[in-house]
């Protein structure tokens, strides 16, 4: 359960203040499937970063499974990112010197999982995204779609409650983009809450719930 109330985020750049979010309130229940749309610079990524516990709001309340995130320490936030949240980036953000298998093991490393179990779980996650035969490939030996699959395997390997994806298909052609979205949807069907930021209007139509954001404010909600 995600509860955002009156969230604002202001970036200060010298004397200029950039109001990236100006009072966003949003609730996402467990198991929901939500798309966030809006023009460039409207604050989508800022919102996702706050939901993903990468960043803290300037004001407002954010409760994640009943816990007030604003009061948590750096270490607590790292723990939340590690255990509760899986994040998929537009730019994949894999570690280039590691193989697919090793990349997927990284979050387990910080969760304190032992080597043997890390290997097993990472291999299982890679099989789940259809990359059981690419364990030893490095990112530069894989296509964009495959890299994003590795990133998804990495996000789900800790069995998080929430999967957040910020334009996960932004760097992919339409075909692999569709495949990635299908994969994410299937994960949602298994019970994971899924929030996706997208530019793609067609893609957004596939979501039962759609939230539009403009100039840092929610302007429209659609439930299909």
């Amino acid at each position: 359960m995600i509860e955002l109330r009156d969230i604002t985020k202001t970036y200060r750049m010298g004397k200029i203040a950039v109001h990236a979010l100006r009072g966003v309130s949003l609730e996402v229940k467990a198991g929901e499937l939500v798309a966030i749309v809006g023009p460039s610079g409207s604050g989508k990524s800022t919102l996702m970063n706050i939901i993903g516990c990468f960043d803290v709001p300037t004001s407002g309340e954010y409760r994640l499974e009943g816990k007030e995130v604003g009061r948590l320490t750096d270490n607590d936030l790292a723990r939340l990112r590690n255990r509760k949240i899986g994040f998929v980036f537009q730019k994949f953000n894999l570690l280039p010197q590691l193989t697919a298998w090793e990349n997927v093991q990284v979050p387990l490393l910080y969760a304190g999982v032992r080597l043997q179990e890390r290997r097993e779980r990472a291999a299982k996650a890679l099989r789940q995204v259809g990359l059981g035969d690419r364990l030893h490939h490095r990112p530069n030996e894989m296509s964009g779609g495959q890299q994003q699959r590795v990133a998804i395997a990495r996000a789900l390997v800790t069995r998080p409650s929430f999967l957040l994806a910020d334009e996960p298909t932004g760097n992919l052609d339409s075909n692999s983009g569709r495949e990635i979205m299908d994969l994410l949807f299937s994960l949602n069907e298994e019970g994971t809450t899924l929030i996706v930021v997208t530019h793609d209007g067609l893609l957004a139509k596939r979501f039962p719930r759609l939230v539009e954001i403009r100039d840092g404010q929610l302007v429209r909600e659609e439930v299909q």
């Binding site: 993903g52 990468f54 750096d74 270490n75 790292a78 723990r79 990112r81 590690n82 255990r83 994040f87 953000n93 894999l94 570690l95 990284v106 979050p107 910080y110 969760a111 990495r154 800790t158």
Partner: peptide, 14 residues
Amino acid sequence: REIGIRKALGARRR
């Protein structure tokens, strides 16, 4: 960037 990725995946300062 590597540090950013590791932190995003749950690495603590320590």
